[in-house]
Nucleic acid binder design. Structure first.
Ligand code: SF4
Ligand code: SF4
Lengths: 138, 138
DNA sequence: ACTAAAAAGGATAAAAATGGTCCTAAAGGC
DNA sequence: GCCTTTAGGACCATTTTTATCCTTTTTAGT
């Protein structure tokens, strides 16, 4: 439970593989999808979201593909995950306080908030550059 | 994303309300369900799981109901959540390492592990007794 | 014994989320 | 004009979530 979906996992794997390319290099979606072992049409949707958010540049037509739009060291794991999964929160009442009218006086609520803050602190502190450098994902 | 389901939320709210009773007191499912604002038949399933796990005692028949089987101070939030949601893990590869053959050399994997450990540390440190005492959930 | 109360357990089902696929359009290089 | 490649939208199967309902079992009280 409370697990990343495939979409989130693919987003992370996909952008790490893109970050492995020489910076500025335009890579084919089909190549990234194959290397990262992700269904190509699914990864296409994810990279489209990344393009809208300014994480990657996309180029159409012959010779086209995707490249990182910013240095990998400026993209955090949190940003990537939240781009496709929405706000990171362990309970409904955390991203939307009015999801529960008890939140003002609820001690459980404050526990979930602590969990969220710890998770965000970790994910904010990890960049795609580190992950691309340290990981040896096939 | 990565949010507790209703079942998990109801489990926590339900056992907190039970813990509000004088210790040893046998409460009706219907009363707990109404106080905690949980569909009664749904809460029934949850409390059945709790009974199997030894968190609560159940008594059938007239005069029956549920009571805590252990002092609320010995039941942690983690135990309650894991009872109904399974292992707390931010990604599939955390509870089952062989869910991904990359886990041995994957830097992302170690990040998710850190997130998990932080979350478990927090949830292990909170007991139902504290929550019942500090919360003012209607 | 009889009856009412209450949980146990199993079957069922609607709704939502997940995990994709497919097709057409648009854009760019030759 | 043709080929390549991404963009965008529609669509769909499966799984998970979120319950509800019904029958059975157990118990207390009379
Ligand atoms: S009862 Fe507390 S923890 Fe549960 S949803 Fe409401 S505010 Fe959040
Ligand atoms: S690639 Fe890494 S983070 Fe993703 S599932 Fe595999 S081990 Fe876990």
């Amino acid at each position: 439970m409370m697990e990343l979906t495939r979409k989130g996992e693919y987003a992370v794997r996909g952008i790490i593989h893109l970050a492995r390319q020489p910076y500025g290099n335009v890579a084919l979606l089909s190549d990234i999808a194959e290397e990262a072992d992700i269904p190509q049409t699914f990864l296409a949707k994810i990279f489209q979201q990344f393009a809208k958010l300014g994480f990657v540049n996309s180029y159409r037509g012959s010779g086209g593909g995707f490249s990182l739009a910013r240095p990998a060291s400026t993209i955090t794991l949190r940003q990537v995950v939240e781009a496709v999964e929405g706000p990171i929160a362990p309970n409904r009442c955390i991203p939307e306080a009015d999801a529960c009218q008890r939140s003002a006086t609820c001690a459980v609520h404050t526990v979930w908030r602590r969990v969220q803050l710890q998770a965000l602190e970790i994910l904010d502190g990890v960049t795609i550059e580190e992950l691309a450098r340290e990981s040896n994902i096939q």
